[in-house]
Design a protein around this nucleic acid. Structure first.
Length: 454
RNA sequence: UCCUCGGUAGCUCAAUGGUAGAGCAUUCGGCUGUUAACCGAAGGGUUGCAGGUUCGAGUCCUGCCCGAGGAGCCA
């Protein structure tokens, strides 16, 4: 541990340096070291051999570098050590960096020495070979699959999306207020919640931070929470996980139109940031970035009524009053390169806390954002019921346990104001931006109906 | 929970009811510019499990287990 100087304000960070691990350079910085002797530390990605010349491909988490080991230029024991390397063995390589047009990254390392940190035994080789594998096999080896360049690209985009969301809200005066994961009761019915033992009592894993967000918004005005969310629904589709991450802003005094604009700006900001910072990852995922580039505001807005009309014309069996199915969402969103905002759904298909439209009480002041290219719903939210009397009616109508909501009703008793917010599912956004056909690849360790390991 | 499809070598997949095979991976050999390298050889199997039909079952039938896609529900 580096010694940390103490000041009157407490801890000071250790002095800055180029690399956290000074024993080696990072492959992503290789160009800076052209002509120099360097050491890299990583894992063997692949090994190609041609008699007296060997090409070990080494990855270190920041990139992949092709090394060149020539028999005549190395001590025999070093050359044999390199020849006998197994896939994913960890190693340190020293050599001279050379610009090389034929190499994938434009640079190569002429090996002068190589030490094996841990050798993968040949009688139990690394299971994921550079060939095709089935989904089930890969999911069983998710802890190793993450090492592949494709998964690394997805992890990078996911990270950028999360960071962009935080920056977006932080830069606009929002305060992050963490909401609990363990909750005392269901906010929208217990059937979709995971139940856990809580000492002598029961608790449930949260399905949304929203009710707590409303309390926080009354304290700080603009708030957001970001955390895991749990749904015990037995959904088995490419858009569902039982554990997923959701970012949820909530704004006091905001109306439906305000949060529709907020959602539009957030999505455009996130897409823009990924296009700016993660072009390389999108390219390696073979994402058609031209479609993402068209994703600039304003986004089309469509009332539920019009959406139903449109769906019927396209042959959907939807009737007014029903919620959209997955195919309906696809039908609505596949034609456009921009996300689509669908607003004012029938109140009865929405949660009890949604405010009715004063002009048409049968519809709620709510909005869903459907991602383009058939990716479907990424955001759901709207204006909340601010009137205590109506809220109590809704709670009773839906036969929810009123005692559990007394604290929530307090928010309507002490300076109730109009307020609105929404939740955005991170994995669906990652799937859309990366162009993936399933959300299971968007989260490091997916939890699904039939998948709890690794 | 329902519907559809699938389970054969470590992996991806073949195999009319008639001797279980290929490519990759592994091991050995060859090759001084390979790009999921290539060429040659070797090892590797209780065909998801349990029954049944049959002279004979990877193949047909029944049940079960596991998985995938979809429906419902949702972000």
């Amino acid at each position: 541990m580096p010694k940390c100087a103490k000041s009157s304000r407490g801890w000071m960070p250790p002095p800055e340096r180029d690399s956290l691990v000074p024993s080696a350079i990072e492959i992503r910085n290789i160009a800076q070291f052209a002509g120099q002797e360097v050491r890299i530390e990583g894992w063997l990605y692949n090994l190609r051999e041609s008699g007296k010349i060997v090409f070990p491909l080494v990855r270190d988490g920041t990139g992949i570098l092709q090394c060149v080991a020539v028999k005549s230029a190395l001590p025999p024991e070093v050359f044999e050590r390199i020849r006998g390397l197994t896939q994913e063995s960890s190693l340190g390589v020293t050599g001279r960096v050379r610009q090389e047009k034929r190499a994938p990254g434009g640079y190569e390392l002429d090996v002068t020495d190589l030490d094996v940190i841990h050798r993968v035994p040949e009688d139990r080789p690394y299971p994921i070979t550079p060939k095709e594998h089935g989904v089930d096999f890969l999911m069983d080896h998710r802890h190793l699959w993450l090492r592949s360049s494709r998964q690394r690209a997805i992890l990078g985009v996911r990270h950028e999306i999360i960071r962009a969301c935080r920056d977006f809200f932080d830069d606009r005066g929002f305060t992050l207020v963490d909401t609990p994961i363990l909750t005392p009761s269901a906010c929208e019915g217990t059937t979709t919640l995971f139940e856990v033992a809580y000492f002598e009592d029961k608790a449930f894993l949260t399905q949304s931070g929203q009710l707590y967000n409303e309390a926080a918004a009354m304290a700080v005005g603009k708030t957001y929470c970001f955390g895991p969310t749990f749904r015990a629904e037995k959904s088995k589709t490419r858009r569902h996980l039982t554990e997923f991450w959701m970012i949820e802003p909530e704004v006091a005094f905001a109306r439906l139109d305000d949060v529709m604009t907020l959602a539009e700006q957030l999505v455009a900001f996130v897409v823009g940031r990924v296009l700016e910072k993660r072009r390389g990852e999108l390219k390696s995922l073979e994402r058609d970035v031209s479609r993402l580039e068209k994703c600039v505001p304003p986004f089309p807005r469509l009332a539920y009524d019009e959406a139903v009309k449109m769906l019927k014309e396209k042959g959907s069996a939807i009737e007014w009053g029903g919620d959209f199915g997955g195919t309906d969402e696809t039908l609505l969103s596949q034609d456009s390169d921009k996300p689509l905002l669908v607003h004012r759904y029938p109140s009865r298909v929405k949660a009890f806390y949604m405010a009715p439209d004063p002009a048409r009480p049968e519809v709620a002041l709510c909005v869903d954002v459907l991602a383009p290219e058939g990716y479907g719903e990424i955001i759901g939210g709207g204006e909340r019921l601010a009137d205590e009397r109506v809220l109590v009616e809704r709670i009773e109508e839906q036969k929810l346990p009123r005692e559990a909501f007394e604290w929530y009703l307090d928010l309507r008793r002490y300076g109730s104001v109009p307020h609105s917010g929404f939740g955005m599912g991170i994995e669906r956004v990652v799937a859309w931006i990366c162009g993936l056909d399933h959300v299971r690849e968007t989260i490091p360790f997916p939890r699904m109906l039939y998948r709890l390991t690794p």
